[in-house]
Computed example of a mutant assay.
Amino acid sequence: MIYLDHAASTPIVESALNIYIKSLREDFANPSAAHKLGKSSMKKVERARQLILKSLKGSKKDQLIFLSSATEANNLAIKGIKLLPSDRVHYSVGDHPSTSEPVKSLNSQLVEIPLLEGGVIDEAKFLESLDKDSKLVVLSHVNNQSGNHYDILSLGKKVKDKFPNIHIHVDGVQGLTKVETNLSSLIDSYTISGHKIGAPKGVGALFIKDGVEVETQLHGGGHEFGIRSSTVNTPLILSLCEAITAGLEDVITNNKKVKRINSLMREELEAADLGITFPFSLDDTSPYILSFLLPSISSDIVLRHLEMKDIYVASSSACSSKAKGFNAGFDAMKIDQSKHKFVLRTSFSKDTTTEDIETFVKEITNIIKEIKRL
């Protein structure tokens, strides 16, 4: 099997799986219980919370809320900020639906962050669009479709220099463990997803900067500082902590390795002379994601042929895979609507090999040539 869909979901890291299984056996008590067994479980959760905050360069005063997913985290951050109808919220239509859809549900003034061709933010126009009524800016660390990597610290500083009280929320799902992450300043909230970084599905986290107030969206027993009620899931949280710790050990080394893999695929596909084009530059994107345009062949058709060879890729983000034809994200990135159905996304891990890439290129070459002959 060749798995090139890591942006959708990742295999569980072995050490994270071992900790998860061990905790399932040992930490079955309710962490909110008053007895010793419950307190022991909660102590492990609090230790994990501090380890993750430290790895993110956060402070002990910052908050890390454990919850079920990135979607829940983005909804909590975006809907939890106290906004008035007159307040302005800046967001990108090109970002994941778990950020754009909660924004669209707000009763505030919505302002699209302008993108240039290739998915790069038009910084000049974006900064010009900010004013005294701007209260929330929603960014992605790495775009899930194009792979565009945004310098959130540089952009965050420019935003805060103009209007220090603007809340900056970042969806870090495709960034954490793949690019260096420093939340020591500027970023007010940051979303983490477990299954994108080698932890199980069903766990995520929301970083909240000290002093930032987020309104409770899930009421109940007052868990997680009263912000997110629900019985704390110790095994998932410990597994998430291990996946983050393991993933951050060699971020720079792994990034360089994956960049070579990304470059190799680009070179091999260009050499195959299939008519494939690359709308997103490697210089502007995370090497972990490579999306390209097929030569007037539906990506869904190519995907089905590849899966028969036990090769797995994506024709769009997993959350948008049922949408046909028009893709709002690609449209915002200046890709002509007539080409949206030709976009194929591949995404890698540090364990993706050159042999995987060579086999993929060989098989997709045969598939495209066969389809063209029909």
Rank of each mutant, 00 (worst) to 15 (best):
G202N: 12
C319Y: 10
Q145S: 15
T352C: 12
G94T: 01
E270H: 05
S154Y: 08
E213C: 01
K259M: 03
E355R: 13
P11E: 12
S69C: 08
R47D: 14
F28E: 10
D331C: 01
A205Q: 07
K61R: 13
E128I: 05
I311T: 04
D95C: 10
V138D: 09
L67D: 04
K57T: 03
P114T: 07
K309C: 04
K209I: 05
D122K: 04
I81M: 09
E224D: 03
F326N: 06
T181F: 01
K309H: 13
I192C: 06
R49S: 02
A33D: 13
K79H: 15
K104Q: 14
S286G: 05
D250W: 00
K158G: 03
V170L: 05
F280Q: 08
Y312D: 01
I65C: 07
A73T: 10
L240Q: 05
T216R: 11
K350N: 11
G118I: 03
R304Y: 09
V142W: 07
M333W: 09
A243S: 14
V159Y: 02
Q109K: 15
K43W: 08
V258R: 03
L56A: 06
L17T: 04
M333L: 14
A272P: 07
L303M: 11
I168L: 14
I371N: 03
K125C: 00
G211L: 11
K362R: 13
E358M: 12
L76S: 02
K322E: 11
A8T: 12
K82F: 12
T191C: 14
L290S: 15
I78G: 10
Y150E: 14
S320C: 07
K61C: 00
I237L: 10
H340P: 03
A8V: 01
L64K: 03
K44W: 04
D122E: 10
E370H: 08
L155I: 15
D87Y: 04
L186H: 03
T353K: 01
I12E: 13
T191V: 15
R260G: 04
S55C: 00
S299F: 02
I335C: 06
S134M: 06
V258P: 02
A77D: 10
V302K: 02
E180Q: 14
Q63D: 12
Y91H: 11
H90G: 03
I78N: 13
S184C: 06
D283M: 09
Y312T: 09
N75C: 06
L37T: 08
V120C: 02
H6R: 11
H169E: 05
H90T: 03
E242L: 07
N255V: 00
L293R: 07
H149K: 15
K162S: 09
V89F: 09
S296M: 04
F207W: 08
H35E: 15
S230I: 08
